[in-house]
Design a protein around this nucleic acid. Structure first.
Lengths: 169, 169
DNA sequence: ATAAAATAGTTGACAAATGTAACTATTATT
DNA sequence: AATAATAGTTACATTTGTCAACTATTTTAT
């Protein structure tokens, strides 16, 4: 590693965050000719789960549902998806890629795959398998640990308020 | 409950982002009794590099320098760090943990280590080593990857290679 | 059958993160 | 001395994260 002389000392959470920043920075560059400049992971997910509801995207990508509303609003505005009420459960809204959305999402999927292929090219198959296995194990472990209710939407009556930092200044 | 039925299909960048979100959720929960609610990774870094300048933190944690100004302003406001001009190069500002900052940062470091220990507890030493090695390789590769030079993008040739941001520390 | 609870999604307010351009001050290069 | 480079700052716009409160619908419990 040419940089980050003490990278090894960082927590795995921080290393993962840095990796994702570097990754999306490269991805954005590679897709700057598209009609959309973000939400790539959501479109990637929709490519595999076209027609799922909003909560499904939130659960799988660890995104808050109120943020998801704005994302879908934007994707509708640029003509990438439609939002259709499920007739069998009218609470749910299906998110469906449009023709245009499908076409551009194909490019996004290609970019994701190309970057993955490129950065894994010098890693042995065995190490790739181990890496992916451990990555998956870590996420699963973290889900079992006590966390804020950010991704799990548990009802918390009388939940503790965070102490205001401004009180101390 | 989120199921991530197709987690395996996500790109490594997306998986890393999800891991970091889960990680910081758990970390925040474990540190909710502290006087600060975020910037844990920066304090963790300062614990090892007390007295470094702002650019050094930016380089090592992949944070924009204009964002860093606000972060340091906040850390000063809550009394965690001081910002001291380097007399030998008056452009540089050294960031130094205060007594209070040191004390609370010790808790933060403990939490980081505890979470890492916990989630890696069921992973063999060999797999841990492989995982960390690959994680490091991937970040390294991404930094070297010329953003506009991806092979799938045949139409856009003749672009000048943009050198990766210099993070030398 | 009806009331209560849970689920899916929305809204509005606000804080924080992100990105960009222009800027000062200082030091290094030519 | 002029120019470039570096470290940091400011101002601004946009996106994202967070929270409480809300509607609508469906499920569960009584």
């Amino acid at each position: 590693m040419p940089t980050n002389t003490n990278y090894a000392k960082l927590s795995v959470g921080t290393k993962a965050l840095i990796l994702s920043k570097l990754y999306y920075s490269v991805l954005s560059k590679s897709l700057e000719n598209l009609d959309i400049e973000r939400y790539y992971s959501i479109l990637f997910f929709l490519n595999e789960h076209n027609g799922c509801n909003q909560q499904c995207i939130c659960n799988n990508l660890a995104i808050d549902k109120t943020a998801m509303v704005k994302v879908i609003d934007h994707l509708i505005k640029v003509g990438f998806v439609d939002r259709n009420v499920n007739p069998d459960d009218r609470r749910e809204h299906f998110i469906v890629l449009t023709k245009k959305g499908q076409k551009q999402t194909a490019e996004i999927v290609k970019s994701f795959h190309a970057i993955d292929a490129e950065i894994f090219s010098s890693v042995s198959k065995e190490d790739q398998a181990t890496f992916n296995k451990v990555l998956c194990q870590l996420s699963s472990k973290l889900k079992e640990l006590p966390a804020t209710d950010l991704f799990f939407n548990y009802k918390k009556t009388g939940r503790k308020k965070k102490s205001a930092v401004s009180d101390k200044v």
